[in-house]
């Protein structure tokens, strides 16, 4: 019996390397362990073994069987590994270019706008939105710019026809509609909707009737800030704007407030900044925004008590800041949307 078993085991060992598919394995397995298999035949012969030899013979058979099963399992593993390799295909070349598109890019103006909004968010400003169509009242009169004031000459605006109605832009009286010339309109809309304390930042698109050139575009974007509360002072305005400039342009940036005039703030300033790290624009004063303390007349137009509340407001052009930060010298590049331009800021 031992000889027979060894012959079977040797046979299996010889056959193993030649088995390459599941079917071959199963077919061969049947010739050994199947009902008519060689091993089965040896096991069946156990009945003829004398009683006292049975334990030894049993051990022999079990040992032989387990070595055959182990051999078959090895073959099975090898076949499975082969099948897996076939399924997976050849190994990849990790250096081939991706056939997928690149991640898209946020427009450079959006990037700067969002950076600015986040900066102001950190010091408690929340975003306010409003429509681009406005009326003369909200764009001018409520901001203390009366109809015949020379300051109105400073803004050449796009108007909508008199007979038109804009269903979702509310008029104050019978004034004309226009495309907002500044985001300061959001100040008025916000102060009419809610009462102090108010601290908002309003990014948005504005329109001026300018002939397009390297620094003027038919539409452009502004960010307006407004803070109204009791005891808001000029010191607060300076602290806020210094924080903004130093965060966005780096700690080496210096600021100055240059007195100016806007009908909706008193006092009014242009804020300039100066930085050693701006390439061609380094080390000169660059104007970046208008700001000031909210004029009491503006508070009166929105029913806020100017004796109790004070506030500051500021507004700046997003394109202007983006052009400085990104080294872009013609605003029109932003509106062409050539991907070779857009992807430079990714």
């Amino acid at each position: 019996m031992e000889i027979e078993l060894n012959t079977i085991i040797d046979g299996v060992q010889d056959k193993m390397p030649h088995l390459s598919t599941r079917a071959e394995l199963e077919a061969y397995k049947a010739t050994i362990l199947g009902p008519n298999g060689a091993m089965t035949a040896v096991m069946k012969s156990m009945g003829q073994v004398p009683k006292d030899e049975k334990p030894a013979a049993g051990k022999l058979i079990n040992k032989a069987k387990s070595s055959v099963v182990t051999a078959f399992n090895e073959v099975m593993q090898r076949i499975e590994a082969g099948e897996m390799a076939t399924r997976l295909g050849p190994s990849i070349d990790p250096s081939l270019p991706s056939p997928d598109l690149d991640r898209g890019t946020l427009h450079p103006i959006s990037q700067v706008r969002e950076e600015m909004v986040q900066l102001f968010s950190k010091i408690g400003f929340s975003v306010a939105e409003a429509t681009e169509i406005e009326t003369e009242h909200y764009c001018f009169d409520a901001l203390n710019i009366p109809a015949d004031h020379p300051a109105r000459d400073m803004q050449d605006s796009y108007y909508l026809p008199d007979q038109l109605t804009v269903a979702n832009v509310e008029k104050h009286a019978d004034e004309k509609y226009l495309l907002r010339t500044h985001t300061s309109t959001v100040q008025i809309r916000t102060m009419l909707e809610s009462k102090p304390p108010i601290r908002i930042i309003a990014p948005g698109r504005c329109f001026r009737r300018d002939t397009p050139d390297a620094t003027h575009s038919a539409n452009f974007h502004q960010i307006e800030g407004l803070y109204v509360d009791e005891h808001v002072s000029l010191l607060d305005l300076k602290a806020t704007l210094d924080y903004f400039v130093k965060t966005i342009f780096g700690p080496k940036a210096k600021t100055r407030l240059r007195p100016s005039f806007f009908p909706f703030t008193e006092p009014s300033f242009e804020m300039d900044f100066y930085s050693p790290d701006l390439g061609k624009l380094s080390n000169k004063w660059l104007e970046i925004m208008g700001c000031g303390m909210v004029d009491p007349e503006v508070f009166k137009s929105v029913d806020i008590d100017p004796d109790r509340f004070t506030g500051y407001a500021f507004g700046m052009g997003v394109e202007r800041i983006a052009m400085i930060l990104q080294g872009v010298d013609d605003i029109r590049y932003y509106y062409q949307n050539d991907v070779r331009f857009l992807e430079q800021f990714a």
């Binding site: 690149d102 991640r103 103006i109 959006s110 939105e129 681009e132 108010i198 038919a218 539409n219 857009l342």
Partner: peptide, 29 residues
């Protein structure tokens, strides 16, 4: 006061679309 929802939605929309391989464009109104 929180950001007006229009703004936060716009931020998420841009995140989504740039993730879908879109480049943001700015055009005249």
């Amino acid at each position: 006061r929180t950001d007006d929802r229009l703004y936060s939605v716009n931020v998420s929309v841009a995140d989504y679309l740039t993730g879908q391989n879109f480049n943001e464009a700015f055009l005249y109104s």
